[in-house]
């Protein structure tokens, strides 16, 4: 099925490329368990495009981060982009906030059956040499150090995927492949990890975050990978005036940095999980934002990245308001 979808994608992109400035998609990398983003202008490269459970990267951020789009004149042709369900929500959020206009992008929507978390694969097959990885029905078949492993896909999906309510793109120009069935349809399933943590005594929760964030090396990969962290080079975590953070690597600095990230994403985070996926220290940082997302949904009935015409609650502002 994947192969059919891939062929369909190639065909669609081939047809569209003359009208596009460039196509952003995924291609195979040196790691059989992960793809790498690819930017295509030359039709010869279209055959390299791939899709499927190894396409973990969220490509939406490239639209707003230099120099991918900035180098493109405003009147240029639209940019083609592959999005999974979750990625499409990031795109919607960026459109909502006017970082990109809808007509500048040609969206190739890809219904998603979940993406693979290489760390979970490593837990099962060890970190030995993975020579090849393929998907056969609901199994991941891995050839590692001469042994073939068959692992249930469900066991190695990214955490965010297990609670995913929107595997199908929210917006698209064309759809590639068959519509997928959501894994979750309830807040309980989506926020099961938040609830599990919330049910623990406060001391345990504090200890949990202390031990997790203790590993943070403040490389800021979580921030740079976040499609909605649009301040990027102007991030207040790095400015000296005002100076919120020192270069020290103590827990207070790490907590503050992550609270800055989370607060600036409140009501904007779509739960795409990039921040957690990219963390070299395997810190579940999306969980912090999930907690805020849950509050947003419960208090304000708002979930980010679902309506291109919507306005995130914390960006609404009433000039006549008396209490501010």
């Amino acid at each position: 099925m994947l192969e059919t979808d891939r062929i369909q994608l190639h065909k669609l992109v081939e047809e569209a490329l003359p009208e596009l400035d460039m196509m952003i998609g995924w291609t195979e990398s040196c790691d059989p368990l992960q793809t790498t983003p690819v930017f295509i202008r030359d039709a010869k490269l279209i055959s390299k495009l791939t899709l499927g459970p190894f396409c973990s990267q969220n490509l939406a951020g490239y639209l707003v981060k230099p120099p991918a789009l900035e180098s493109v004149p405003k009147d240029a042709k639209p940019i083609g982009i592959c999005v999974k369900g979750c990625d499409s929500r990031s795109l919607v959020a960026l459109i909502q906030e006017k970082f990109i206009s809808r007509d500048r992008v040609r969206i190739f929507g890809i219904p998603c059956r979940g993406t693979i978390d290489w760390r979970k694969v490593a837990q099962r097959v060890g970190l030995s040499d993975v020579k090849s990885a393929t998907v056969e029905d609901d199994f991941l078949v891995i050839d590692a150090s001469g042994t073939t492993h068959r692992i249930g896909l469900e066991d190695v999906l990214a955490r965010k995927c297990l609670g995913c309510r929107y595997p199908n793109p929210i917006i698209q120009d064309v759809l590639v492949g068959q519509v997928a069935t959501p894994r979750s349809s309830s807040l309980e399933t989506t926020y099961r990890d938040v609830d599990a943590l919330d049910n623990k005594p406060i001391e345990e929760r504090l200890a949990f975050w202390q031990s997790e964030l203790d590993r943070c090396i403040r490389c800021y990969a979580c921030r740079n990978a976040c499609p909605l962290c649009v301040c990027q080079d102007k991030c207040i975590a790095e400015t000296r005036e005002p100076r919120w953070l020192t270069q020290r690597v103590g827990l207070p600095e790490k907590f503050l940095f992550h609270f800055i990230h989370a607060m600036h994403l409140a009501g904007r985070c779509t739960g795409c999980g990039e921040c957690e996926r990219v963390c070299p220290m395997d810190i579940p940082v999306t969980l912090i934002k999930e907690k805020l997302n849950k509050i947003m949904e419960e208090m304000l009935g708002y979930s980010a990245g679902l309506d291109p015409d919507g306005v995130p609650p914390l960006l609404t502002f009433n000039p006549g308001e008396t209490e501010i």
Binding site: P37, V38, F39, Y62, C219, A225
Partner: peptide, 9 residues
């Protein structure tokens, strides 16, 4: 390197 995130990892 167009796909680089400048993340510093």
């Amino acid at each position: 390197v167009s796909q680089c995130l400048s993340c510093g990892v």
